[in-house]
Amino acid sequence: MSSRTNARNTAIAPAALALAFALSANAPAHAGASGSVSLSSDYVFRGVSQTNQEPALQGGIEYASDSGFYVGAWGSNVSWLSDTVVVGDDISSSLELDAYAGYRGKAGERFAYDVGALYYGYPGDYPGGFNSPNTAELYLGATVTPTDTLSLGLKASYALTDLFGYADSDGSAYLDASLNWTFQPTWTLNLHGGKQWIENNEAFEYTDWKVGVTKAFDHGFSIAAAYADTDAEQALYTNAHGNDIAGDAFTLTLSKAF
């Protein structure tokens, strides 16, 4: 997920939410329980490092019914909140725990849609008066698969609460466009572009993009390499350690699906 020096994530205007579509990258192929665990060289969310450009261990589990309804949970180590200070223990938060639920459906053979709600939780200790980073979002999306090897997606997320600690930022939004092309068996090209809007915090808004490739192996293993960047204002995204967490980033991720 995307972080800031003193806040977090992004979004898109309410009117756009009703028109937006999204790629459901984690949609299971069949009903039942599924999950994954991964180790990444950096946790980059919406173009911004959540771990001060350090490794992240992540995992999640989901249950989907035959009707299309699903529920899941996901977690990762993070440091973007505690990285707002170098010395002292005013902020103690090293974990992100997310919960989500929604419905996935299809209209014909080539069009799928997904609608749901997602809650980002950051347990920890915070100083008095600190605006809570916990965030609730609604999302709406769809994918189109023109061929068996190509998928195109759009996804819109809309914040029901203040967005990752930004003051008076409820109503913020994020729009995500994705392309995934399996150009050779087990090899997939991954492209992404996104735009973050933050209500009453326009200086922190930005556009992000990513290009990567994923190699799939037997038994649910995969490895992904990606390069990401943003046009975020460097001074606003430089943390207390002097790192530009919204700058260009190259990541390697090893995953196991089950």
Rank of each mutant, 00 (worst) to 15 (best):
D162V: 10
V211D: 03
S2T: 04
E54S: 15
A29E: 12
A33W: 15
V85Q: 15
S255Y: 05
K215Q: 15
T147H: 09
A31E: 15
Y166E: 12
T161I: 02
L154H: 03
W187Q: 11
V71E: 03
D83N: 08
L160K: 07
A224N: 13
F69G: 05
S92E: 02
A249F: 01
Y113N: 07
L81W: 14
S157V: 06
P185F: 06
D90Y: 11
S38V: 08
T149R: 13
G129L: 09
L95D: 06
S36M: 11
G116Y: 06
T207N: 15
L179D: 07
G242W: 12
V87G: 03
Y126E: 00
I198A: 06
Q234A: 14
A20K: 05
A117Q: 01
W74N: 02
A240P: 04
T238Q: 09
H30I: 01
A173W: 14
R8N: 14
A159E: 08
S82K: 13
F250P: 05
T143N: 14
E96V: 00
S41E: 03
S76L: 01
P133L: 03
A25T: 13
P133E: 02
F130E: 08
G35E: 02
A177V: 13
L189G: 02
A240F: 08
D42I: 01
D170A: 15
Q58L: 12
A249I: 05
F45C: 08
V211A: 14
S94C: 01
A240V: 05
L154E: 08
L179Q: 04
K195N: 09
F164G: 15
G193E: 10
